[in-house]
């Protein structure tokens, strides 16, 4: 898989610093897990974070902190929490997504369906899997917030280029997306979205009311 579109550096740095909300962390994380180049960048920022940790002014810790830590360790010296069992068995999904509950596929328009990903509810952005039929024109839309898209399967193209598996697309309210799905097969994307979708054009007005995620 040749990846040609990567998240912007500041988004990767926010990811490494732990500042992204859940939906964004998920989409960036799935990209980084499959992209050696971005994994290096994230590790470099973590390395800088390690240096910051070494240099920071130490803050006095509670007097009983060490005793409390030792008694917690004494109670269970090993990690107890085994990773929760995979909630989805779909082998086509990236491993990171197998631990999430993924809702039923909902058809939103001819050739277009989505499956919401259940997040913990701590953030504002929603995450979902978007599947569009080969050759179809995806939602013609602008949005009021940001939209992160990671291609899992198939491809789409818009004025920014062609996006295939592993490619990451970053959209904000200044971008007017008119993506067209590649002919080679359906396109499945992992999407994190904040703000409202504003449908443009006839197709948008037609299906707009149904795109409530």
């Amino acid at each position: 898989m040749t990846i040609s579109h990567h998240p912007p550096e500041d988004l990767l740095a926010d990811f490494a610093a732990g500042k992204l909300e859940e939906a964004h962390q998920l989409v960036v994380g799935v990209h980084v897990a499959g992209c050696a180049r971005c994994a290096r960048f994230v590790q470099a920022v973590e390395h800088l974070a390690g240096a910051a940790l070494e240099d920071v002014e130490p803050a006095p810790i509670a007097p009983d902190a060490f005793a409390r830590v030792m008694s917690a360790i004494h109670e269970s010296p090993q990690e107890t929490a085994a990773p929760p069992p995979a909630s989805t068995t779909d082998p086509d999904l990236p491993p990171a997504l197998r631990r999430y509950r993924i809702g039923k596929r909902r058809r939103v328009a001819p050739g277009l369906s989505l499956r919401p990903i259940e997040l913990s509810g701590s953030g504002q952005a929603r995450a979902f899997l978007l599947r569009s039929a080969p050759g179809s024109r995806m939602l013609e839309h602008t949005h009021t917030g940001t939209e992160l898209t990671l291609v899992l399967e198939g491809s789409f193209s818009h004025e920014g280029g062609r996006f295939g598996p592993g490619d990451f697309d970053y959209g904000d309210d200044e971008v007017d997306h008119r993506p067209i799905v590649g002919e080679e097969g359906p396109c499945v994307c992992l999407v994190a979205m904040t703000g409202d979708l504003r449908m443009n054009g006839f197709l948008g007005r037609l299906i707009g009311p149904f795109v409530r995620l």
Partner: peptide, 15 residues
Amino acid sequence: LPDEPDQAEAVDVLI
């Protein structure tokens, strides 16, 4: 809200 376990590490361990 759905009852979900904490996931910060779930994504992180894949890197």
